[in-house]
């Protein structure tokens, strides 16, 4: 009944273990969401109201950069690009 993300604490489990388990579940889900984004058209909202769309390729493991292709910018299409995650406010895609 209890989903894996919100299991009640296991008997005698330390706070540290609970936290580690929660961290693992949340990270796995995040990585799976990135995996689902691969090859899809993603719309990125950047600072200063800039919006760009691109085909998502990959992220590095500390989520510092997104590698994308066919980046459509106001001044043209970039075949391959790295978007700095610190420049991104949000991104949206349809799975």
């Amino acid at each position: 009944e209890a989903p894996e993300t919100q299991e009640s604490p296991r008997l005698g489990e330390s706070l540290e273990c609970q936290e580690q388990r929660a961290r693992a579940v949340q990270r796995e889900r995040y990585l799976r969401s990135l995996l689902a984004m691969g090859g899809r058209q993603v719309s990125f909202t950047l600072h200063e109201g800039v919006r760009v769309t691109a085909c998502f390729g990959a992220a590095d493991l500390d989520v510092a950069n997104f590698y994308v292709s066919q980046l459509q910018t106001p001044i043209g299409v970039q075949a391959e690009a790295l978007l700095r995650c610190s420049d991104i406010i949000a991104y949206t895609f349809k799975p």
């Binding site: 990270r27 889900r29 969401s33 500390d62 995650c85 949000a90 991104y91 895609f93």
Partner: peptide, 27 residues
């Protein structure tokens, strides 16, 4: 859906009227 423990990015899901979904990540 989740929050990435590394970057604290939060992933939101919306169910659209046509039955599809959209996924938004806020860094």
């Amino acid at each position: 859906l989740t929050t990435d423990p590394v970057s604290a990015s939060i992933v939101l899901v919306n169910f659209l009227e046509d039955g599809s979904m959209s996924v938004t990540g806020v860094m």
